[in-house]
């Protein structure tokens, strides 16, 4: 039997180093029974997850600053366990720069971009945010769903910011091949395999195509279940060292480069 499934069935944690590079606080419109930061940390404790990098769900709208404040509070409540992505909303070039610098000064570890707001990632208002990420070598997490236009925009940013790790969230939710092509063109890109459906074989196919060294694990907690999202990696059949790279090794490298790993 799969050793991690066996451990879970015995009530034991996986016993691996794990960092969740895609997590949230806040809420969408549908029900999640316990959205509290405490419930996320409790889940992390059960699974042996060292740290989770969270963005507030209000990064999707013009109330992003409220969300950043909440994330900052969570970071202070759980130092080293909860890391922060600045939710970047395109208020305007100057305001974006001011907001990003403010929150990075508070110890946030990366930037989160979401195009649910209807504004493309290459909108001029975002320019300073991209430039700061490149200059400080901090990760940029982009919500993606495999569309040609979306990946084209992110690709332009990845090319212009070669020193910033570019994380493609929900890689493989649609258009698996398009993600593989993207990775061939952009050496600073990472596939973030967060996706509710956990398609059988997807993690393995990505690792075979681009290498485990270019993948990170995320769960989408507090929306999705962290244990369920871990299962897709445990069931992938990858060698242990590859799993370990996906689950934490690459994340630690990214965070270390950003100066945030020491706390994780």
């Amino acid at each position: 039997m799969n050793q991690f499934v066996e451990k879970a069935l015995a009530g034991l944690p996986p016993g691996l180093d794990i960092i969740d590079m895609h997590a949230h606080v806040g809420c969408f419109s549908y029900t999640v029974p316990d959205r509290s930061v405490g419930s996320i940390v409790a889940s992390m404790d059960r699974l042996g997850i060292a740290a989770a990098a969270v963005a507030h769900i209000r990064c999707t709208n013009a109330d992003a600053e409220y969300g950043n404040e909440i994330v900052c509070n969570a970071m202070q409540e759980y130092p080293g366990r909860i890391l922060g992505y600045v939710g970047v909303f395109p208020y305007g070039r100057t305001e974006v720069r001011r907001n990003v610098e403010r929150w990075l000064g508070e110890g946030f570890s990366g930037l989160k971009f979401h195009d649910m707001n209807g504004i493309p990632y290459n909108h001029p208002s975002y320019a300073h945010a991209h430039a700061i990420a490149n200059e400080r070598r901090i990760p940029m997490l982009f919500h993606t769903w495999g569309t040609e236009k979306q990946l084209d925009h992110v690709g332009r940013i990845a090319s212009a910011c070669p020193d910033a790790p570019v994380l493609l969230a929900h890689a493989g939710a649609e258009a698996e091949e398009r993600y593989v092509d993207f990775m061939k063109k952009h050496p600073n890109a990472f596939l973030d395999v967060t996706y509710s459906r956990s398609p059988r074989g997807l993690v393995r196919r990505f690792a075979d195509a681009v290498g485990a060294a270019r993948m990170v694990w995320g769960s989408d907690v507090n929306v999705l279940n962290q244990a369920q999202q871990l299962g897709k990696v445990f069931g992938s059949g990858l060698p242990l060292e590859d799993m370990q790279m996906i689950l934490a090794g690459n994340a630690r490298r990214i965070l270390e480069q950003a100066g945030a790993a020491s706390s994780a």
Partner: peptide, 19 residues
């Protein structure tokens, strides 16, 4: 589990690790 479309270990983990 949702086999064959989904990875079965994901569903096992969800149940096994829920409090």
């Amino acid at each position: 589990t949702g086999f064959p479309e989904s990875e079965p270990a994901a569903a096992v983990m969800l149940l096994a690790c829920s409090p």
